[in-house]
Design a protein around this nucleic acid. Sequence first.
DNA 1: GTCCAGCGGTTTCATTTTGAAACCATTCAT
DNA 2: ATGAATGGTTTCAAAATGAAACCGCTGGAC
Lengths: 128, 128
Amino acid sequence: MIGDRWSLLIVRDVFDGIRRFSELQRNLGLAKNILASRLRELVAQGILEMVPATDGSAYQEYALTAKGRELFAVIVALRKWGEAHLFEEDEPRSALVDIENELPVRLQVTDATGRPISSGEAFVRKVS
Amino acid sequence: MIGDRWSLLIVRDVFDGIRRFSELQRNLGLAKNILASRLRELVAQGILEMVPATDGSAYQEYALTAKGRELFAVIVALRKWGEAHLFEEDEPRSALVDIENELPVRLQVTDATGRPISSGEAFVRKVS
DNA sequence: GTCCAGCGGTTTCATTTTGAAACCATTCAT
DNA sequence: ATGAATGGTTTCAAAATGAAACCGCTGGAC
C-alpha cells in the first residue's frame, strides 16, 4: 500500500473524483501496465472497487470502499505537508478547503480530551 | 519521499526513538545499502539530519528536523489506519497513546471552525 | 597497547520491479 | 459501417532492490 510510488497517488486522485482508467493514466502519467497492476492490487486489498460507470456507458469505474475512504486523513496529512514543503516560496500551489467556507481544512492530532499534542507527547503501547 | 517502500518507515522509527543505523537496520530488516541510500536522501531532503550521538560516543545519530517533525500527522494517520485494517480481529496490535492519560490519540480533519468533516465536504482549490 | 567485536557504511552482482511501446478486443460516436 | 477512444495485456530494456562480502574506524576487555 504505502510500499510503492503510485498507490497512494491513485487513491488521492480517486478522492478528487477521478474514477476512470484513462483519466488516472493521463493525470498521473504512469505506464498503463503499472496502473492496471496497482488498481488490481487496490481492489484486492478492498480499498477500491469496480462499479458500473455513472454516465450510463458500459465501462466500469473505480470507487473507494469504506476502508478506502478511511484513508482520508492520510491523504489530507500528506497533501498538507506537500503543500507546505514541496513548493517554492512563490510557486502557485493548491490547498484543500472545506466546501462551506472555502477555507483550508485543519488536521489535528489530539489526546483523548481534545487537546492538541506533538510527537513528544505520544508513544506506542501494546494493546490486546 | 512517499515514492518508496522504506522512507516513511524509517521516519516512523525515528519518531519512535530509533536513531542509530544498526538499530534501524535490525528493526526494519532492510539491506544496509538501501538503508544508507534512503538515509542519504532523507538528509538531502532536509527531513533528517545527522547529529552527534547522545551517549558520548564518536558515532552520529539521525534526528528529525523541523520539516521532518511536521510529518507527525502523516505518521499518525498511517499508523491509525494500519492499526484498524492491517490486523486480524484478535491479533495483538499496538496503539499510539498520549503520555498523560495513556489513551489512544485522536486525529481529526476539521473545517476552519473546528467542525469535523469527511472527504465529501472538501475539495482542492488553486491558491496563489 | 593489542586484539577483537560492533558500527556504519560501500561494492559487486543477481533478481525483481518498473516503464515504454506495441498490440488487442470491446465500446462509443458519427 | 467505420474510426477513434477505452481498458487493458504482452514484450523487452532499463532501473531499483536485495543479499553478501568487504572495509576502515571505534569501543571495550585485557
